[in-house]
Each structure stands twice: as structure tokens, then as C-alpha cells.
């Protein structure tokens, strides 16, 4: 028992030698009837892919929503603790919520393209940021569509409805739309769960490339995917962080029975 705790602490030290971008401490989330997140403490390293792993219902989505204050939409949730980005506790911020959200790009479980054209889906965030120059917008639309390898597929129908794209293309569009606001962090909630294997691969490849410029926090319950992508793994179970650390350590040398079991079943 003792050794387990020591190794866990060592891991934390190892991580803090990297550049941290987000610091979560003592985060608790309660609903009316349940304690959804229990005392979450983690540091997210910059320019890495952090994977939140765990069975469904363990609170991964909720944790992600805390990070960009989408929890505000659910009046039944009560949060305490801190989430620090750039030295600022975003949970207590009252006025600059839109700016906080623009530090993060969100990719959801299923793509939800905005009810407008492909072009406008990307331009939307830019316009919200105050970009007015049409040429700049056009340039950025192209840049971000290229960034997600969608440009060649849609360049001839930028003005047509985003709804008509295939679901895999829609998901890449949603990624591009998030990138267009030039976030520091990409939050991805099971981004491939609604996609076919090929589209999933494309998204995964994008993520590996994007980590040079962005920090990625990705939720998944697919163990293989976590192994392919993760630099850093956070394993959650019933609202608690059970283990976290470098991907190699976690996957080769899991400490807890719960994670061992999860990995055995996941294979």
C-alpha cells in the first residue's frame, strides 16, 4: 500500500517538471442528489495529449465541462475548488467567461455543426472574436480547414450547408471551428465515438499533429485509442481520480486493481 502512494507521488513530480497549462485543485461537483466529482487534483501539461480514461458515468464529461464553464448551463450543479489557467481561477470569473471559453476549443461526442454554411461555421468564432476583415476571415477559414485535412474535400462547396457533410467530415469541421478561435487547449469528449473507423483514424492523426501547437485534453473510454494517443493519462472511476501519470507508466505498470481490471476487460 505504502509503495503505491510513493510511486503516485513520484509521478506527480515527474509531470510537474513539464510546463503546466492548467491546474485543477480540490475540485468537487455536486448535483442535488449526487457527488459527481470528488476532490479532483491534477495538473495538465502543455503541448501534450492528456487522456481522461474511465467507464461511462464516471464524470469525464462533467470534468471537461468544468474546464470551460459549460457547467454554468446546469443550475442544478454546484462546484467548488479551483481551476487555474494562466494564473487565473476560471471558476470564480464573472465577466470574462466568453474569453475563457475561447481559450478552449470543444469537440463533442457527436458533431453539432451550426445551422449555417461550412464557411460560416468557421467564420462564426472569428466574428465573435471581432475579426471583421473579409480577407482575413477567408484566409483563416482556409487555414483551419487545411489543418483538419478538410479543405480539399469542401473547397468547392464552402457556401453549402454544413449539415450535408458526412458525419466524419462534420466532426473535422467542428474541430476546425474550435481551432479557429485560436485556443490554447482543445477539449475533446469522446470525439470519435460516433464515427466509423476510418474517420476516427483521421481525427486521431489530426490530434497527434495538433499537439505541437495545442494542449489536448481528450476523453475516451477506448483503451486502444488512449494507448495510441496519450502522453499523460488520468484514470477516473465513480467521480474520483484513481491513478494518473505518464502513459507509459500507467499502461505498463498499473497500480490499482480497478485499473488493472479495466485494462484487462478493455483488451
Amino acid at each position: 500500500m505504502k509503495t503505491a502512494i510513493v510511486t503516485a507521488e513520484k509521478r506527480v513530480e515527474h509531470i510537474t517538471t513539464e510546463v503546466p497549462i492548467m491546474n485543477i485543485s480540490n475540485l468537487n461537483v455536486y448535483s442535488k442528489s449526487a457527488h459527481i466529482l470528488k476532490n479532483i487534483n491534477i495538473t495538465i501539461p502543455k503541448n501534450k495529449i492528456t487522456v481522461l480514461l474511465g467507464p461511462s458515468g464516471c464524470g469525464k464529461t462533467t470534468l471537461l465541462k468544468c474546464m470551460n464553464r459549460l457547467t454554468d448551463l446546469y443550475s442544478e450543479l454546484r462546484l467548488d475548488g479551483t481551476i487555474e489557467i494562466d494564473g487565473q481561477n476560471i471558476l470564480t470569473e464573472r465577466n470574462r467567461i466568453t474569453e475563457i471559453r475561447q481559450k478552449m476549443g470543444l469537440v463533442m461526442q457527436r458533431p453539432y455543426p451550426l445551422p449555417m454554411s461550412i464557411y460560416d461555421n468557421i467564420a462564426y468564432g472569428l466574428k465573435l472574436k471581432g475579426v471583421r476583415d473579409k480577407n482575413v476571415i477567408a484566409e483563416k477559414v482556409e487555414k483551419h480547414l487545411r489543418e483538419v485535412a478538410l479543405w480539399d474535400e469542401v473547397k468547392d462547396r464552402l457556401k453549402s450547408s454544413a449539415q450535408r457533410l458526412s458525419i466524419g467530415q462534420q466532426q473535422r469541421l467542428c474541430l476546425a471551428r474550435g481551432l479557429a478561435v485560436e485556443p490554447e487547449i482543445i477539449l475533446a469528449d469522446e470525439p470519435t465515438s460516433a464515427l466509423d473507423p476510418i474517420s476516427s483514424r483521421v481525427i486521431e492523426e489530426q490530434f497527434s499533429k495538433l499537439k505541437d501547437d495545442y494542449t489536448i485534453i481528450m476523453v475516451t473510454h477506448i483503451l486502444r485509442q488512449a494507448k495510441r494517443l496519450a502522453d499523460y493519462v488520468v484514470f477516473m472511476y465513480y467521480g474520483e481520480i484513481i491513478e494518473h501519470g505518464n502513459a507509459a507508466d500507467i499502461f505498463e505498470n498499473p497500480q490499482t486493481d480497478i485499473l488493472k481490471e479495466y485494462m484487462r476487460v478493455g483488451h
Partner: peptide, 12 residues
């Protein structure tokens, strides 16, 4: 709801 969340997450 997710459509609203998508828009808000973009800073709207």
C-alpha cells in the same frame, strides 16, 4: 442542448 454548448464554447 449541445448545439447551444457548441456556440457558447466558441465564445458566443
Amino acid at each position: 442542448v449541445e448545439l447551444g454548448e457548441a456556440s457558447l464554447s466558441l465564445g458566443a
